[in-house]
Nucleic acid binder design. Sequence first.
DNA 1: GAGTACATGTAAATTGTTACATGATTTA
DNA 2: TAAATCATGTAACAATTTACATGTACTC
Lengths: 173, 173
Amino acid sequence: MSLRFAVLGLLSIRPASGYELARHIETTLPQVWYARNNQLYAELAKLADDGFAEIVEEGPRGRRVYAATEVGRAELWRWLVEAEPDRKQRSEVALRDFLLPELRKDDALRVLERETRHLAAELGETEELLRRMAELASPDDVRVLATEHRRLLTEARLEWSRLAARRIAARQD
Amino acid sequence: MSLRFAVLGLLSIRPASGYELARHIETTLPQVWYARNNQLYAELAKLADDGFAEIVEEGPRGRRVYAATEVGRAELWRWLVEAEPDRKQRSEVALRDFLLPELRKDDALRVLERETRHLAAELGETEELLRRMAELASPDDVRVLATEHRRLLTEARLEWSRLAARRIAARQD
DNA sequence: GAGTACATGTAAATTGTTACATGATTTA
DNA sequence: TAAATCATGTAACAATTTACATGTACTC
């Protein structure tokens, strides 16, 4: 059910075509609710069918821009405010972290180092993005808060990687 | 593909029946790689079929305990050490956080407060669990590191919730 | 004029969910 | 002995992925 609200939510932030949604998800939301273009086109059609979205513009190459309707916004509101969140997840990265301590010390440390490097780079990019955003958008903007979210989670993962590396390095093997 | 490695990984930590895996995932890993019992039974059968796991014990009520084979451990090793992680995710909680700033100020704050309470409680439980574990297991134990992981991520989410609440509260509405 | 990015989709396969079936053993 | 828990599964459905199809507009 969440794909529906991901799409409806993005449309309620600003009208978009399926193609634009796909690019947006690919570039800025792959760790929130990943979806493929064909899934998005199908969901847009269903949302329009149910009256939660509508086509507000048609462009070249069959481009169709959808926007959330009033009914759609109300539906989104209900979901955000009244529905009980489903806290279950599937995260390959978390699964890897979970299993990694089972590796032999040197293997575990090698994998952790790779991960630490990746996370440090991601954190750097996120901080840079926040600096650039600070001049353009207000601190309570959706995009700014989403980026702060990413910053804090990346920081936490990085901290865990370093903690795990210290603990595993101290292992007598 | 990750369900396969989730199961293989759990079996490589300790042999278990499908029922035990289901309970383990339900209680301690629902935010890592959630799976249902019927999915687990099917995956265990496939793992056994491929030679990555084997039945090592049969008990009452048709209970079958599986363990990872040497081949299975090698497969798991390859995945952890050599395969490129897939960093895409689907997290309803993250999606809600992302969309929440689009709500009207008072609605957003109400939802954030509910979320903050939930996270604070979860953090408390996690810290308590860590204290109890400190006496029983060594600091580099899989379960301890997994719990530290949860602690750090929950802390980050809590921090974001408070940050978001401050920023949104400062909005002139 | 060729290549890239735009733009939407269909079909088949895999993965995950929901609802149900079935029965054995343990505990109150 | 009734209820709870243990224990494994099947069938139908929904969501997601993979591979492919098709053509248009822009850019070099």
